[in-house]
Nucleic acid binder design. Sequence first.
DNA 1: TTGTATGCGTTATCAG
DNA 2: CTGATAACGCATACAA
Lengths: 347, 347
Amino acid sequence: MQKNTCNIYDVAKMAGVSTATVSRVLNGSDKVSPRTRDKVMDVVTKVGFTPNAFAKGLGMNTMHTVGILVPTISDTYMASAVAYLEKELVTYGYDCILSCSGFELAGKQTKTELLLSKHIDSLIYVGSTYAGNGKDIHTTNYIRRAAKQVPVFIINGNVAGENIYASVFEDEAAVYEMTGRLIGRGRKHILFLTDSHSYSSNNKKKGFRKALKEAGIDEKDKVLYVENDVYAVKEFLLSLEGKKIDAIIAANDDIAIGAVKYALHRGIRIPEDLEIIGYNNSYLAVSSSPEISSIDNHTAEICKDTVERIIRILSGEENTLKHKISVPCSLVERETTLRESEESAKL
Amino acid sequence: MQKNTCNIYDVAKMAGVSTATVSRVLNGSDKVSPRTRDKVMDVVTKVGFTPNAFAKGLGMNTMHTVGILVPTISDTYMASAVAYLEKELVTYGYDCILSCSGFELAGKQTKTELLLSKHIDSLIYVGSTYAGNGKDIHTTNYIRRAAKQVPVFIINGNVAGENIYASVFEDEAAVYEMTGRLIGRGRKHILFLTDSHSYSSNNKKKGFRKALKEAGIDEKDKVLYVENDVYAVKEFLLSLEGKKIDAIIAANDDIAIGAVKYALHRGIRIPEDLEIIGYNNSYLAVSSSPEISSIDNHTAEICKDTVERIIRILSGEENTLKHKISVPCSLVERETTLRESEESAKL
DNA sequence: TTGTATGCGTTATCAG
DNA sequence: CTGATAACGCATACAA
């Protein structure tokens, strides 16, 4: 019940020294004699003294926390990103204060303000949804405003601006590549399924269209928007009765799962008659049966890298950092695609 | 870059009043004339003044944050619990600072200290792992120590002690009930698969054993420990070559997924030849094919309830609260169990 | 090497 | 209704 009632003055008195000395001991200053150090440490351990974080924060203007904003933490992919970030941040002595904004602009703004009001040292936005659609600049103004106060990092999205650092995945290239491979195997009726108009989703779409165009395949009705819900996707595909489909690229693994359920329901063979490619290589991909081949954007590395950049910036190295880095994606082949080696067998 | 350089003195000066008045306006005191209020608010909005959270914290001894400790946030179930908690806490004006401890005692202790050092108002442990095994009291001492500083809440685990509040699920009753139903349908070779010796897991085990005993079924080699990994579970079950199995109850959905993969691999029919019951009713259960029937412990309600209790305690109502509440579980029937109505057809 | 004194930005207490 | 001022607990520049 009773909070830590013991402060640095008490410790100083009990140790027979000044508060300055106690502070020095606690902060590992070398300008203190071993004897005094021991004397102080004895008291500190005896009474279990821990410095008041608020007082420290007030003086130093930092409590060594970074804010993490995600649309929702119950999404498998976001959760794993947060897990990586937290783990890395802790190594550098930073704690993280988490906030879930939802996908609406109002929530993003409110939660950003809330986080900033806690005097975080830096702010990380996780998810392409924060990048807006790239067209309407109003939808990202709150990020630029936040960047006036602390360095801002965006994982999987690009927003231009002072003090804003972005990591983007080479989604366009990845989908272009995968679509090309599918076409190379003779697939002609490929669908791209997405649930959003985010920066990331738009890039995937671009890569998809480019590959179709280059192969001379009509893009009409090939890019389809669905609700991000397993059942909704399944029902949607079932409703496409007459449509010929021999491959599906999904903007995330949830959608891919819906596609799998659709195929199983219809008795369509995977991958022989229908290839499915998921995105994010989340835990869902392996929990599915058949297991989903999924595009991996190397979240772990990106998160680690992001934290390192944060630390560097907070140490005052900002000038040396690039404001945007992009990382390639790769396909993790599982059971919903034909392996390159199996192609000949199939054809 | 530059932090908010404007403080309450500046605002006071610009508005031609004292800092006390500014503070009063900001905190909605009614003891201030409308004219003065407007005068102050004009300045506040013009310069975009936000009070320094550290200074406030120092004075009030709170920053309105609660700590949340989970073993790992990348677990689907934990993530959804955190999502619920965060959502509720925000409604009451509390932010949450998240920490991932892992499953080892050392991590739990370290992270608890870390969280406490940030002067959180309350601490929530999410997951049965924090309850230890119920035998060795040393494994939960850090929780009692934490409870000396702030009210502690445990979701899905019981630790006795002053200032500790627990919500436990009626896991024993649930598994007892489910096992009974399976036996009622003629299942004789039922396995209980778990990955831990946690409080929760032990209770499930108890319910399982009780049901077997009452039905006169030999319990030998029916409770098995596995690694919490889809592939490991699958391989483990495959290694049980000769063993007859007609039903599996898993301590979580991940393990259940492994069981599904085992059955599919072997060509065993689900649910006709093998019924599988998962636990937690997580997103994984529906992402699987066939979809897994899973025991739901109503996390959403528990989280909501927990937050309400926190708020009440922080408002000084502690005496009125029970230290332990338990909530019943229920089975969400999907495709890996026979429905009651289908039983007769099967027999 | 150690101690003194001050600032950090609020809120709250007490006068007026 | 409003203003002056004392906490809150720590770090640090400056003195000794």
